[in-house]
Structures are given as C-alpha cells and as structure tokens.
C-alpha cells in the first residue's frame, strides 16, 4: 500500500508553514505522520501537498514557563514518557504517553500531532482535556490561545483553522495525583475505553473512546464536587453520553466499562 501522489515540502519555520498553508488549497501539515500516513495509505486522506514541520528548530521542548509547563508541539511521545520534569510536575502525561502504541510509534508521534488529529480514541488528548490544557496556535494574524474545552470540536475536528499551526501545549502544575485506566485486550491496542483522572483539590476526569471527541466525565465530576461517594459518582459515568459501538465493544458495553474504570481510577487516586 502507498499513498496517492502528493508533493512533499520541508519548512524551516512556523511562519513559512503558515504562509504555504494559507496559499495552497489542499495542503496538510505532516508531523510524526503516525496518524496521517496510515490514513493516506488507505486513501482515506489524499492531500496534494504535505508540509513537513518536523525540521523546525526549537519546537520540541518541555519546560517551566510562567508557572505552567510548556510543551513544544513537536515533542515526541517518547520524550514525554521519559521527561523528569513531567514525572515531577504532571506525572499523568508520562504515564499516558507510555501506553501509546509501542516504542517505535512513540519515537515518531508528537503531542502536537495527536492533539491536532483530535481523535476521540486517542489517549493524550483526553489527558490534556482533563488537565485543562491550553493550546497555542499560530496563523497569518499571529498567535492565539485556545482552552482545551473549546479545542476538540467534532469527529477528527479541532478549533484549529487549516492554515494554523499548533505550536505549544501548556499544562498547569499541581495535578500530582492521577490515575490512568486504559482498557484493552491485547498488547499495543488502542483503548476500548480509557479514563484519565487527575486531582488537585478538585477531581477532573477525561474519557478516551467514549465519544467522537475526547470528553470530560462531567456528571461524575459534578457528583464528586457535591460530596457524593466514589461509588455513587461512578454510577453516573455514562450519564448523558452515547459511546460508540464497534468490533471491540457495543455502546452498552462501553457505558458499563466507563463505570468500572472510573471507580478503579477514583480508588487509585485515594
């Protein structure tokens, strides 16, 4: 299998990428390629131009900045997994990153790529949503910041415009208590359902594969905030949600799993 024909171009700066994306009709950013290239090989995507942003300098970093942790969009899953700063300040991110695909996938895939892809079945976007991350995007009119709750807008859709480049993801410090429950049946599989819980006074919960976008377990969070027991809160896990059905599980099965995994996550948070 190979993709249909396209032109490949490398850019040296974000501005150059933005300028090409603003001018060309059918162009797409290429980062790690580990979502885009499989789609192109299956001919589910056939852009005419790929703009490779991975050679842009200084876009792969994890650092403290203004009381938050700033992560460059080109930071690979492997770098998240092995970051001492994250292990100390936002330990949920290395824990989640370490479960994405397998080591070879993690050597290629980027945080910016998985966020921009906006797949409800992906693990890291659900973690970013639970952490109330901020997404920094650059377009022809300059830079703007997008809150996680406004970022994931639909099936493989985000708030990014086609000519915008996601440059940085910012996460708050302080969520030291976390639990990640990824339920699958075989090594390296995607989550059938995943639950990312983080706590810093309040408890935030993100869902993997419970809808077309990453979701928050709003009903559970509200129950916990109003003093409900973990079991009562977990009973609301699927309230108001319509999880997908596929070969790995029916919608009902996912709703049931969500309750079980939320309860496990809450007991692990302690």
């Amino acid at each position: 299998m190979f993709p249909s024909k396209f032109e490949y171009r490398r850019v040296a700066s974000v501005d150059e990428a933005v300028s090409i994306l603003s001018q060309e009709e059918d162009a797409k950013i290429l980062a790690g390629g580990h979502s885009l290239i499989p789609l192109m090989k299956l001919r589910l995507a056939s852009p005419e131009l790929l703009v490779d942003i991975t050679k842009i300098e200084n876009m792969s970093y994890i650092r403290e900045d203004d009381g938050e942790i700033a992560i460059g969009a080109l930071t690979r899953h492997h770098a998240l997994e092995t970051s001492e700063l994250l292990a100390r300040e936002v330990p949920v991110l290395p824990a989640v990153a370490a479960t994405v695909g397998d080591p070879a996938v993690r050597h290629c895939g980027t945080l910016g790529g998985t966020a921009s892809h906006g797949d409800g079945a992906s693990d890291l976007p659900a973690a970013l949503l639970a952490l109330d991350a901020t997404f920094v995007a650059k377009g022809p009119k300059g830079e703007r910041r997008i809150a996680a709750k406004d970022f994931f807008t639909g099936f493989l859709e985000t708030a990014l415009a086609p000519f915008e480049v996601l440059t940085e993801i910012r996460v708050p410090k302080g969520y030291r208590s976390y639990s990640f429950q990824k339920f699958n049946r075989r090594a390296q599989d995607w989550a059938i359902v995943g639950v990312v819980a983080v706590r810093n006074g309040t408890t935030n919960i993100g869902y993997v594969n419970m809808g077309v976008t990453p979701l928050r377990a709003t009903a559970v969070e509200q129950q916990l905030a109003s003093g409900a027991s973990d079991d009562d809160a977990a009973a609301a896990a699927a309230a108001g949600l319509t999880p997908p059905s596929d070969i790995n599980g029916s919608s009902e099965y996912r709703a049931h799993l969500a309750g079980v995994l939320v309860r496990r996550a809450l007991s692990e948070l302690g």
Binding site: M1, G33, H34, P38, L50, T54, A104, H107, Q188
Partner: peptide, 27 residues
C-alpha cells in the same frame, strides 16, 4: 502487515526504532 502493527519493517533512524512502512523516505 503494511499497517504499522507487526514491526517486521522496523529499522533504526538515528539509533531509534521506527516502522519503515509508516515513514516516508523524504522524512
């Protein structure tokens, strides 16, 4: 597999494993 699942195509790029069926030569 040709779908990034089996690892038969694994090579090293700058010393790190990658699945060469899911990477462009251009990259």
């Amino acid at each position: 597999c040709d779908t990034s699942s089996c690892g038969a195509c694994t090579v090293l790029v700058n010393g790190e494993s990658v699945k060469s069926c899911t990477v462009l030569a251009a990259q």
